[in-house]
């Protein structure tokens, strides 16, 4: 089996012993069975067990292993090793814009706070019927491209508006989730949800930079969802 050596530059910071962050040069041998960046990271950890990163499902549905890979946010488990040019080290950093706990692990409290702030649950105050609430296939289709979000934070941490105002701007992931409930015919809280976003920061800090669309590992389009929320607000106002 053919093997090749991959060079890495990895952001390292352990507050227990490092005074400041540093970049580690390290290499690892991979073979044909190692297809994804995560495979290489797991091998790296066998070489240096102190390299710290999150991972779980290794198939792009749990959203744990989001990293800044050669300057662009993405999931390690969905990034092909063959996509890296030969001879150049692969630079791995934690997601930008969030505090670093250790190495490639960031503190996502702020990100989840914003997600929670949009009330990400179905609100329907009618007494629940005996059977399922009916929804036509067309109405259900409105939720496609919205409910699939895995909360990996690739989008929000690539958004300059989120970098400047992580405490006040909901960010693309949270706004996508907000529209997921606005678009759900079973939800009755559309007005409250729009009120909740009617603010110079929470929604309108989106300047359609579209970094979120560029990095989303699931191919979702938060900018489009944000545009639809704005359109609904305009419609409501006039």
């Amino acid at each position: 089996m053919t093997t090749r050596t991959l060079q890495f530059k990895i952001y390292r910071y352990d507050p227990d012993k490092d005074r400041k962050p540093w970049m580690q040069d390290i290499s690892v041998e991979v073979d044909g069975t190692d297809r994804k960046l995560l495979d290489a990271l797991v091998k790296l950890k066998a070489v240096d067990d102190a390299i710290s990163f999150r991972r779980s499902c290794r198939e792009g549905v749990c959203g744990s292993d989001a990293l800044n890979i050669n300057g662009k946010n993405g999931l390690a488990c969905l990034t092909d090793l063959s996509s890296f040019p030969e001879g150049k080290p692969i630079v791995l950093r934690p997601l930008p814009g969030l505090p670093v706990i250790r190495d490639l692990i960031v503190d996502m409290t702020q990100f989840f706070k914003q997600y929670h702030s949009i009330k990400p649950y179905l609100i329907n105050n009618d007494p629940p019927p005996e059977r399922e609430r009916l929804q036509s296939p067309e109405d259900r289709e409105e939720l496609d491209g919205l409910y699939e979000c895995i909360l990996c934070a690739c989008c929000s941490t690539s958004c300059p508006s989120f970098w400047w105002n992580p405490d006040k701007f909901v960010g693309p992931a949270g706004l996508l989730a907000a529209y997921r409930f606005i678009a759900d015919t079973r939800d009755q809280a559309t007005s409250e949800r729009l009120d909740n976003l009617e603010d110079p920061y929470r929604l309108f800090r989106c300047h359609t930079i579209m970094n979120c669309v560029d990095v989303c590992p699931k191919g979702l389009n938060p900018t489009l969802a944000i545009g639809k929320i704005k359109a609904m607000m305009v419609k409501r106002a006039i």
């Binding site: 649950y121 059977r131 296939p137 259900r140 079973r186």
Partner: peptide, 19 residues
């Protein structure tokens, strides 16, 4: 399963609007 639907789970639908 019905409870889940009431929680908001986005099940696919039949033409009649059921799960």
């Amino acid at each position: 399963v019905i409870e889940l639907e009431h929680y908001g789970m986005p099940f696919d639908r039949t033409d009649a609007g059921k799960i």
